[in-house]
Nucleic acid binder design. Structure first.
Lengths: 126, 126
DNA sequence: TCGAACCATCACATTGATGTAAAGGTCCAC
DNA sequence: GTGGACCTTTACATCAATGTGATGGTTCGA
């Protein structure tokens, strides 16, 4: 599929698809005319990238962890260098920290909303 | 306390403390000589700000939700305008999405690490 | 009273993720 | 064969979160 379709199906600007490619997050073939030719699986991959970006991870890290996230995982373990393992472990810890922080604050907001909405009248009507 | 001590205790560059103030995230008094004079509670607040920033929230949003996160909560509810409630609800949903995404991916990484480390020998020694 | 270590403001640089525009090639339908 | 809708690359703009430096005031101890 070409970039336009991918953009539409993923809700991602073409500009960013090219950017992700430039950052090494996605790959594509080229048609004879030079047009990018994306694999079907790229749709999911872009979704995952966007999720991780939105979660606060930089492309640099996403690039490193993406290969480990492939679902039908090729267990031939591309190149699990000790360095990469270390990166993953660091990122794992960092993500857990992030999750904890987000969870704590989300719960606090939920609690606050509960209180506010309750004293505005239990029903969602106002 | 002055900015230097706050910087040290929070591990945050002075530059950023001034930036957070500029963004309305923290407040401080001024000594006679113009030096910033921070309240003890600012230490925790800065920690919270950093956590939220690291979790991917922009200062603009943090500014809105911070007042709702104060622990010994002043239940006199400053100004829970409908607009603010809406913002909070939006942010709540967004945070939940972020948390889900991070959790999914963290678990995937953890699983990957498990597999990799297992076939490198169960013990952490190598 | 001098220097070191603070503090202040102001301002410009950078980085990452984006927007947007310019200049041009390709393809298809009419 | 022309117009429009696609694609290409290049490059400059923006925004938020930071880094860094210039310039100068304050405090304090030697």
């Amino acid at each position: 599929m070409r970039i336009g379709e991918l953009a539409e199906r993923t809700g991602t600007p073409r500009r960013l698809l090219r950017y992700y490619e430039e950052q090494g997050l996605i790959l594509c073939a080229r048609s004879a005319n030079g047009y990018r030719d994306y694999d079907e699986s790229t749709v999911d991959r872009v979704g995952q990238i966007r999720g991780l970006l939105d979660a606060g991870l930089p492309t640099r890290i996403i690039k490193q962890i993406l290969p480990c996230l492939d679902k039908p995982r090729q267990i031939h373990f591309p190149d699990a260098t000790p360095e990469m393992i270390a990166t993953l472990e660091r990122e794992l810890a960092s993500m857990s920290g992030r999750i904890d922080c987000l969870t704590r604050n989300r719960d606090a907001i939920a609690e606050y909303l509960d209180e506010v909405l309750e004293r505005a009248g239990g029903s969602p009507a106002e």
